[in-house]
Simulated scan of single mutants.
Amino acid sequence: MRQRLFSGVICLLLLSAVSFVHAQDDRLQIVASNSILANVATIVAGDAADVTSTMPAGADPHSFQPTPNELTALADADIVFVNGALFEEGLLEAIENAGTDMNIVTASSCVDILAFGEHDHDHEEEAGEHEEEHTVEPAAEVDSDIAALCESHYAEMEALHEASHDEGEESAETEDHEGEDAEHDHSAGESLGPLYTLNCESQDHEEEHEEGEHNHGACDPHVWLDPHNVMYWTMLIRDTLIEADPANADTYTSNAAAYLDELDTLAHDFIVPMVESVPEENRILVTNHDAFGYFAAHYGFEVVGTVIPSGSTLAEPSTADVAALIDTIREANVPAIFAETTVNTSLADQIAEETGATIYTLYSGSLSDADGPASTYVDYIHYNITTIVEALGGGIE
Rank of each mutant, 00 (worst) to 15 (best):
G372H: 09
Y259F: 14
M231D: 00
D120C: 09
A267P: 02
G84V: 09
Y377D: 03
G90M: 12
E89A: 08
G365L: 06
G372P: 12
H121V: 15
H134D: 13
V334F: 07
T240S: 13
E131W: 03
A23Y: 07
M231G: 02
V303H: 03
S171G: 05
D226N: 15
T174L: 06
E276H: 05
E178C: 07
A357Q: 08
T100M: 12
M274K: 02
L12S: 09
I30E: 13
I30H: 10
G311E: 05
T319G: 12
G117Q: 03
P373D: 11
L195I: 09
I388A: 06
T355K: 02
Y232A: 04
L5C: 10
A155R: 06
R238H: 06
D145W: 01
E93M: 07
E118S: 14
D60Y: 12
G372K: 08
N103M: 03
W224M: 03
I43P: 01
T342N: 10
S164C: 08
Q29I: 08
P138C: 13
V9D: 00
A348L: 10
S63E: 15
H153A: 10
Q29F: 11
E302A: 11
D122F: 07
N199R: 13
L362R: 04
E70V: 11
E126C: 05
E390M: 09
D101R: 15
L225Q: 15
H165Q: 10
L86F: 04
E331N: 11
V40Q: 02
Y360R: 15
P66L: 02
V334E: 06
G217A: 10
D25V: 02
A163D: 15
A57W: 00
T313N: 01
A391Y: 03
E126S: 14
V286E: 09
E141A: 13
C11P: 02
S16Y: 07
G300E: 03
S16R: 02
F20G: 00
A45R: 09
L91Y: 04
E190P: 08
A357D: 10
V286Y: 06
M157H: 08
L92M: 15
P273G: 11
S346V: 11
E276I: 02
D76F: 00
D369I: 13
D261Q: 13
G179V: 04
I326C: 01
